[in-house]
Amino acid sequence: MKINNVILRTVARVVVYIILTLAVYLFLAGHNNPGGGFIGGLVLSTAFVLLFIVFDIETIQKALPFDFKKVAALGALLAVGTGFGSFLFDVSFLTQAFDYFDLPFFGEVELTTVTIFELGVALVVVGVVVTIILSISEDV
C-alpha cells in the first residue's frame, strides 16, 4: 500500500533517530538508573514499527534484511551463553562479574557481564515484538 503523505514521511525520518538514541540510552542506563534490556528493546522495536507503518513493509524489509525470528533466537542464545560462560571460571550458573577498566576515551568505566545478558533480553524483545506485528499485519 502506497501513501503520499510527505509530512509524515519527512518527520518519521527525523523522529526515528531520536527513538533509536533513546533506546540505546535506556539500554545502557539500566545498570544504575531506570531502564535496561526489556524497555530498551521495546523502544527499539517501536522505532522499527514506526518505519513499517510509515513506509512499505517490503521497502523496510529490503533495507533491514534481518529475519526477526532469528534475532530473537540469537538473543536467547546470548542470554543462556552468559549463564554457561560462568562455568569457565568454575562458579555456579548465571554468576555475574564486574570490574573497572580504564578505556582510552571514556575514562574509568564499570564493565559487567550483566550487560551481555541484558543485550540478549533486548534482542529477544525486539525479535518477538516485530515478529508479532509483522505476522498480524499481513493479509491471509
Binding site: 509530512i7 509524515l8 518527520v11 527525523v14 523522529v15 538514541t21
Partner: peptide, 21 residues
Amino acid sequence: SVRLILGIVFVFITSPVAGHL
C-alpha cells in the same frame, strides 16, 4: 536532564504531525 531536552524536541516535532494525520 538530557531526557527532558529530548522530550521537548520530540513533542515539538511529533504532536503537530499527529494532529495533521
